[in-house]
Amino acid sequence: MDKVLFGAMPYVLIFTAIVGAIWRYRGNKYTWSSQSSQFLENKTLFFGSFPWHYGIITILLGHIFGIFFPSAILAWNGVPVRLYILELTALSFGFLALFGLLALIYRRLTNSRVKALTSSWDVLILIVLLIQVVTGVLNATMYRWGSNWYAGAAVPWIWSILKLNPNVDYVASLPLITKVHIFNALIFIGFIPFSRLAHFVVLNPYKYLVRPYQVVRWYKRTPQTENIVQYK
């Protein structure tokens, strides 16, 4: 069972994500959008979108940092005070995200305009994300110290997957909630290209910080895209 869930499924779902992303980007780029619904409702969204995004993006970046620098985390956690600081910060961002997510779900259920525009994908990803955040917060509160064993057990497993040499032993002995958290994360990855989650994959906004304000496109000249008016 573990072999299938944590040995084979990662490949299936990561493969789905990559192929799906290429398929959608090339074939149906028009639908690639954050599907903002602020235009229809903007009071509850404030209490949902801000906490959710600031919470989840911080947490995600933390996870990614851990993948690349597990030893840094372990070293930092060597001193108890620093461990508490890290755990507390992570947990508060987790709660921030959870609060935001609940507000978003509440909004989708109660506002008739937003409800009318909610697709099956929106429901699906909200469920997946809710499971993810709830199990994440439970992990952090029930099995301490999460950051330590994330760096000690989950990260080696992730690397074994990435190195095409899956070693399920790292995660086999983890508690159920943690396993749900990990497997659900894989589902989440698999869903990205098909739902509105795609919105955070193609991050063109980063260019905005360096490009001049104005964009001009030409039919006859090369390069076709040109930025003019260089004021800061």
Partner: peptide
């Protein structure tokens, strides 16, 4: 144009 983070809006040169 100036506000679009994606660079999706543009002025046509011609």
């Amino acid at each position: 144009v100036a506000s679009c983070p994606s660079g999706a809006i543009y002025k046509r040169g011609e």
